[in-house]
Nucleic acid binder design. Structure first.
Length: 812
RNA sequence: GCCGGAGUGGCGGAACCGGUAGACGCGCCGGACUCAAAAUCCGGUGGGCGCAAGCCCGUGUGGGUUCGAGUCCCACCUCCGGCACCA
């Protein structure tokens, strides 16, 4: 029977289903607990249960699976769990639109997606699955909240918050994106509100979060987080405001203090009302009023002309005792530093613009190179020597920063200070579908945490969850009204729920023991598996999830729950898979690729391999519907390798061996560094070679070469490799086989192709023995007629020899 | 404006340490099989000149370093991502 006729009815879907069943029956992917092996905790970001796995999930998860399988074959015990990030807005919105309860909607989606995940053929250990909307899970969100509260890391405060008018809830600052400040979820521009909200004190960890020395993460993420935290070093300086008292400013330029010719406060600064003189009151009030009505977008528009009003008050510059006018202006933000600044127009562009407009003195105190004493035509922000600065004249300004700071310190009017851009994490959400915050308010006892033993505070099933701007839980009397755990008197519950980023901040710990009920995770399991060795997921979480989970782990360490500092040692960010039109996939564009269609037609392995083949994983790229055909063709062709061939043994056996070992080396190196695309290219190339020599290789050697090939293929195309392995009569399962080793000495070739260049230009390729000497190589090169044509009649000045590769003849 | 990243055939991409530019795949062209088509298989495929051997050009642009540059350095252009009145 010819190979084409046996393969004509090749049906990947049938084969794949069969193996998936066999794998499940035999428990092939139950987590290996053999403690004699080194551990490898591989984690892929958990999906939101939106209903169906889209091609983006495949793009994120199947290469992660390939990597995990590779580690398993290399002798690690691998933990590769999966779960569902099940709280959040889409469930509620779907519920509102279709009248289904969010719980039902979410659970049926999860059920559906579990099946789809199995179809991927990934080695997920489904026994460790976590569903974050399960009380068994969110109970521990509440437990953590109480621990944070005890440590003073959870607090409630009236703060200006970003409010999404469409989703009817507050957002964390990280969840407001773009220059026009839109909601990260729905794209609606956010508005400002003042609300009393719960926050987590992530700023306590700002400095530690800037330290990436213990993790191998992409530079990109480290930079994004560093910028987001935005550490600025400088000084706090107290300015005495006449008739009021000291007001503190923050500056990064204490060296320019002598040039502070005016003082500016944010319109929201609490002292504004008190310092304003009666004759300026009306104007100041009007300005404050106007500023408060302005949207955040207009307020922070850099291109807007600076405005402000004089308060009538004067402050004293502590450096030189000069009286300087106090203004309010909306370019000073209450949310950064102290909400007040010393304005140095000569050395700050904003202050310069303001001073020009309002006729304030612009006094140079840092001399630009070659400065002749005249007034500057624009702010000079560069380096220079201090001038007009009393005792500091002549000091280089960088040195001046420290000297002025200690001078202020000695006089008790200033100190070195650090300010961050990072704000505390606002976790309150006015929505139903989230973890209730375990706090009770009692008239007698005030704010009372729910005792640990009363957890979980269950989310009521029958609440009316339509959002109105207030938490739906407030309208549920059964939930809202309760007893004070302290005095037993009547009390009410906190009705806000937690940001869903709380759920994903620690899920990697819960996976270890999803049903453990004495703590968030079983410490014994933790010792075996923590921390996560390799995390994979999208870059979009750089300053949200990836920052929160680092914060969370540091708090867990300080709570004595873990003994390490970082949750994930290594991180790899995959790119985004785009539509065929190279645009982001979206329903409105109609360019969404449904993976199911391709699974049904070509099989999971073809889809997996195609997604890995498309390009570098961190780059993403457009989907190419025809490209998958090529991958499918390759897999089908490779299947015929297992059919018996003739055994005339004509092919060069060392060539087969060399290529096989070279393949192992190549794929091993590529998989170590996530280069799936070139791995697949090498596998394809090797397949073509094997097909070409198949009838010319003696049986034993052929079998050995093929066993290596199939094992190397296994992480990429797990079903396909399993099928080939079985057809070869090998014992189940290929996925329990060891990753093949390669022998460097077998890779080396005896004959090399020597490149011959003349003046750096390629002129010929000649065959030469591998260890050829420089002299011999040069002589060989000079014998080539092609080379001679370029050398003849010219002087050979020198030659460059790269052993085993090339010889370059330099002629004049 | 500031901070990252990237520009290579018709397309996705490869070239990992400065040493054969374009691996692998798609597409396209030609051939085999077929009554025919699909599928499959074989061959070709950066551009220009040439019958050919071969020669010249070619990795966003311009310069530089080097025996040799897609790769290193300088300047610039374009695109993508992030931040942005942060004192």
């Amino acid at each position: 029977m010819s190979e084409t006729s046996t393969r004509r009815d090749y049906e990947p879907v049938t084969i794949e289903r069969r193996w998936q069943e066999r794998w499940a029956e035999s428990g092939l992917y139950k987590t290996d607990e053999d403690m004699s092996k080194p551990k490898h905790y591989a984690l892929t970001m958990l999906p939101y249960p939106s209903g169906d796995l889209h091609v983006g999930h495949w793009y994120a998860m199947t290469p992660s699976d390939t990597r995990a399988r590779f580690m398993r074959m290399r002798g690690y015990r691998v933990f590769f769990p999966i779960g569902f990030d099940a709280f959040g807005l889409p469930a509620e919105n779907a519920a509102i639109n279709r009248g289904i309860h969010p719980y039902k909607w979410t659970m049926s989606n999860i059920e559906n997606m579990r099946g789809q995940l199995r179809q991927m053929g990934a080695m997920f250990d489904f026994d460790s699955e976590v569903v974050t909307c399960d009380p068994e899970y969110y109970r521990w969100n509440q437990w953590f909240f109480l621990k944070f509260y005890e440590k003073g890391l959870a607090y409630r405060k009236e703060v200006p918050v970003d409010w999404c008018p469409r989703d009817n809830t507050t957002l964390a600052r990280e969840q407001v994106v773009g220059p026009d400040r839109r909601c990260e979820r729905c794209g609606t521009p956010v508005i400002r509100k003042n609300l009393t909200q719960w926050l987590f004190k992530i700023t306590d960890y700002a400095d530690e979060l800037l330290d990436f020395s213990r993790i191998e993460w992409p530079e990109r993420v480290k930079t994004l987080q560093t910028n987001w935290i935005g550490r600025s070093e400088g000084a706090e300086i107290e300015f005495e405001v006449e008739g009021y008292g000291p007001i503190t400013v923050f500056t990064t330029r204490p060296d320019t203090l002598f040039g502070a010719t005016f003082f500016v406060m944010s319109p929201e600064h609490p002292a504004v009302e008190k310092i304003t003189t009666p004759e300026r009151e009306a104007e100041v009030k009007a300005y404050v009023e106007k500023a408060s009505r302005m949207t955040e977008i207009d307020r922070t528009d850099v291109t807007r002309e600076k405005t402000g009003v004089f308060t009538g008050a004067y402050a004293v510059n502590p450096a030189n005792g000069e009286r300087i006018p106090v203004f309010i202006a909306d370019y000073v933000l209450m949310g950064y530093g102290t909400g007040a600044i010393m304005a140095v127009p000569a050395h700050d562009e904003r202050d310069f613009e303001f001073a020009r407009k309002y006729g304030v003195e612009i006094r140079t105190v840092i001399a630009p190179p070659g400065w002749d004493g005249e007034e500057l035509s624009e702010a000079y922000v560069g380096e220079g020597r201090m001038v007009n600065s009393g005792p500091f004249d002549g000091t280089p300004n960088e040195e001046g920063k420290e000297r002025v700071t200690s001078w202020l310190e000695e006089r008790g009017v200033g100190r070195a200070a650090v300010t961050y851009r990072l704000r505390d994490w606002l976790i309150s959400r006015q929505r139903y579908w989230g973890t209730p915050i375990p706090i009770v308010y009692c008239d007698e006892c005030g704010t009372v945490p729910v005792p640990e033993e009363d957890l979980p505070v269950l989310l009521p099933q029958d609440a009316d969850f339509v959002p109105t701007g207030e938490s739906p839980l407030k309208r549920d009397p059964g939930f809202y009204n309760t007893e004070c755990p302290r005095c037993g008197g009547p009390a009410t519950r906190e009705t806000d729920t937690m940001d869903t980023f709380v759920d994903s901040s620690w899920y990697q710990y819960r996976y270890l023991s999803p049903h453990y009920d004495e703590g968030p995770f079983d410490p014994e399991r933790g010792k075996r598996w923590l921390p996560v060795d390799q995390y994979t997921g999208g870059i979009e979480h750089a300053v949200m999830h990836l920052l929160y989970t680092r914060f969370w782990t540091k708090v867990m360490r300080d709570l004595g729950l873990v003994d390490f500092d970082e949750p994930m040692l290594r991180l790899f960010n995959q790119g985004i898979i785009l539509g065929e039109d190279a645009e982001k996939m979206s329903k409105s564009r109609g360019n969404v690729v449904n993976p199911q269609e391709f699974v049904d037609r070509y099989g999971s392995d073809a889809l997996r391999c195609f997604l890995m083949f498309i390009g570098p994983w961190d780059q993403g790229g457009p989907w190419d519907g025809r490209g998958i055909e090529g991958v499918s063709r390759w897999l089908r062709r490779s299947l015929s390798l297992t059919a018996d061939g003739a055994s005339d043994a004509e092919a060069d056996p060392s060539e087969l061996e060399r290529r096989t070992h070279r393949l192992v080396k190549k794929v091993t190196g590529d998989l170590e560094s996530f280069r799936f695309n070139t791995s697949i290219a090498a596998l394809m190339e090797h397949t073509s070679y094997l097909l070409a020599v198949r009838d010319e290789v003696e049986g034993e050697r052929w079998g050995e070469a093929l066993r290596i090939f199939v094992r190397v293929l296994a992480p990429f195309a797990p079903h396909h490799a399993e099928e080939m392995w079985a057809e070869m009569g090998e014992t189940y399962s290929v996925h329990e086989q060891a990753w093949p080793e390669w022998d460097e000495s077998l890779i080396a070739e005896e004959e090399i192709t020597l490149i011959v260049q003349v003046n750096g230009k390629l002129r010929d390729r000649v065959s030469a023995p591998a260890g050829i000497s420089e002299e011999a190589a040069r002589d060989l090169a000079l014998k080539s007629p092609k080379v001679r044509a370029h050398v003849e009649g010219r002087e050979l000045r020198k030659s460059v020899y790269v052993p085993g590769r090339l010889v370059n003849l330099v002629v004049g």
